[in-house]
């Protein structure tokens, strides 16, 4: 039988903090056509990244049933990435700007890093977060009368719910009902919070690095003059 990603009856509704943050940031994130296009492309990249993680999970997973579920989920994520990228490109073209093209992402190999239960907990938490955001954005664009974007988020919410539910079901199957699964979810949330903290640190360090390198660059003027004199652009054949 085909592994339909079914909705669990006891699935949690929305993540309150994510919902609050989405509400707080939406007017800024979607303040202009350019920002909407950018935000949609960020979503496209996140979906593409998720697709790669799920494909990597399918390649490593020994259970054919779970492998099949990861593959189907990966195909959903690929489709979502294409939908977000297409909407982003359309907005960019409307502004007379070049679209960013196909979303390119990298894979962290989370299945190998976290183990299967950890991976499932991570994906579940991510899907819940995504669905919560999309629920708010659906309402946000409905209020604005932006039917295309409202319809985009409406189309995705159902899929996200399905992904959220099947990963929770698998987590409970692999880790055990009740406390063990909840413990895994908490652990993954803590890991994700730490990762976000580190990323924020990297962001600050990156900005600082850019400033320092810019200062260093200016100080390289004499060296650049020396390089131009001593190492001019070569022309013609070089012989060994």
């Amino acid at each position: 039988m085909s592994p339909k990603i079914a909705r669990a009856p006891d699935a949690i509704d929305v993540a309150p903090i994510t919902y609050f943050l989405a509400r707080l940031t939406a007017p800024i994130s979607f303040a202009s056509k350019a920002r909407i296009a950018k935000r949609l492309f960020v979503f496209a990249m996140a979906e593409q990244e998720s697709m790669l993680e799920l494909r990597a999970a399918a390649a490593l997973c020994e259970s054919p049933e779970r492998r099949a579920l990861y593959l189907r989920h990966a195909l959903d994520e690929e489709r979502h990435a294409a939908m977000f990228a297409a909407h982003s490109a359309e907005l960019r073209r409307e502004m007379g700007r070049a679209p960013w093209g196909a979303p390119r992402a990298t894979c962290e190999d989370l299945f190998a890093k976290l183990g299967e239960p950890g991976f499932l907990a991570f994906v579940h938490a991510g899907e819940r977060k995504g669905r919560t955001q999309f629920i708010y954005y659906e309402r946000y664009f409905e209020r604005l009368g932006h039917n295309k974007l409202r319809a985009l988020f409406t189309a995705l919410i159902g899929d996200e719910r399905g992904h959220e539910d099947y990963t929770l079901r698998l987590l409970r199957e692999t880790e055990g009902q009740g406390r063990p699964a909840k413990r895994k979810l908490l652990r993954v949330r803590a890991w994700e919070a730490l990762r976000m903290w580190r990323r924020a640190g990297q962001g600050v360090a990156g900005a600082l690095y850019f400033v320092l390198m810019s200062v260093l660059y200016v100080s390289l003027l004499p060296l650049s003059l020396w390089v131009r004199i001593t190492r001019p652009k070569p022309r013609g054949w070089l012989e060994p």
Binding site: Y209, F210, M213, S214, Y217, L220, L221, L223, S224, V227, R228, R231, K233
Partner: peptide
Amino acid sequence: LVSTLRSFPASFRKFPTVVR
């Protein structure tokens, strides 16, 4: 590094990325 220096100051934006 040599080609980046040769393109001074036009390589201003690229320099931090290249070094990193």
